[in-house]
């Protein structure tokens, strides 16, 4: 017992911090069921039952915001699974070690730069008189207002997100590929399999469990469309195609100060996300025997 006291004491500071900054806000989330008034505080604001939630479903914004969130997140998930896979297959064919390593060093880099910086660059490149439009005009095409065009905005989000993360996401595929026994390729080659056939019958089957695992874990992310990126790239003209739950909660809550409503929307997102993560972990455990703890 006395020996375990040290263990409890080691956990104490961290647990205290989690209590204050994670558990207390959960209790504070009751304002989703209140007509919250900052002057009265959480304890004295009048209760309003499910009013904030019913209101949420009545306002026209909400349908758009939910749709945008789902569509953008799913587009990013698909691209985030496929592009790194293709890139890992390409990289796996490269036999020249120094070249492979240099490519890896370069493509991992954007992952470590912040969306503030990358957005600054993207906004500049895609501006009306920016370099991309210059290139378009040399091909005789008309310039495009990329950042205020609802047809383009989601594609720009997916493309720039893929650009930033594909390199880093290949790591997990490459780790799985190092486990392939070279004799499998030799056997395939002796049987007359060309490179493409070897990729199809040796490399891809090896990666299949990893692909299934990543796809399963992605279920937990279908409500995370990427706040940092969208917050730094969007503007009111593209709310129609790019406004997501997180940006909407920020504006309703902290800018317009409709605390109850914003908390209700945020809470709903958290509950649904939580359930999805539980489901995805269950599935990952069942199909891939994967456990994080």
């Amino acid at each position: 017992m006395k020996k375990n006291m040290t263990l409890h004491l080691m956990l104490l500071p961290g647990m205290a911090i989690l209590f204050v900054f994670a558990i207390l806000p959960m209790l504070g989330a009751v304002i989703a069921f209140q007509d919250f008034n900052p002057a009265l505080g959480v304890t004295r604001s009048p209760w309003s039952g499910w009013a904030n939630f019913t209101f949420m479903f009545q306002i026209p914004d909400s349908k758009q915001v939910f749709t945008n969130t789902l569509v953008i997140a799913c587009m990013k998930i698909i691209s985030g699974l496929v592009v790194p896979l293709l890139f890992a297959l390409l990289l796996n064919e490269m036999r020249l070690a120094w070249f492979k390593k240099s490519v890896q060093t370069i493509v991992y880099l954007p992952h470590f730069l912040s969306w503030v910086i990358l957005s600054g660059i993207v906004l500049d490149l895609l501006s009306y008189d920016g370099i991309i439009n210059h290139i378009l005009s040399t091909f005789g095409l008309n310039p495009i207002m990329f950042m205020s065009n609802n047809h383009w905005f989601r594609w720009i989000l997916v493309f720039t997100d893929t650009w930033k993360e594909f390199g880093f996401n290949t790591i997990i595929y490459l780790a799985a590929l190092t486990g392939i026994n070279p004799s499998l390729y030799e056997a395939a080659a002796i049987d007359g399999a060309a490179r493409m056939k070897q990729i199809r019958h040796v490399t891809l089957p090896t990666l299949l469990p990893t692909i299934i695992l990543l796809a399963t874990l992605a279920i937990g992310n279908v409500l995370n469309a990427g706040f940092d990126q969208i917050f730094n790239l969007y503007n009111p003209l593209v709310y129609e195609s790019g406004d997501i739950i997180d940006t909407y909660v920020y504006r309703t809550g902290l800018i317009e100060q409709q605390y109850g409503l914003a908390t209700a929307i945020g809470l709903m997102k958290s509950v649904v996300s939580f359930l999805l993560i539980i489901v995805s972990y269950r599935l990952a455990y069942k199909f891939a025997n994967y456990r994080i703890f």
């Binding site: 204050v20 900054f21 207390l24 806000p25 959960m26 945020g266 958290s270 939580f274």
Partner: peptide, 19 residues
């Protein structure tokens, strides 16, 4: 407790109000 705080968050507004 640890895993629960990782998987579930109260959302932006209550977090801001605590701080």
């Amino acid at each position: 407790i640890l895993v629960f705080t990782m998987l579930f968050s109260a959302g932006l507004i209550p977090w801001y109000m605590v701080i």
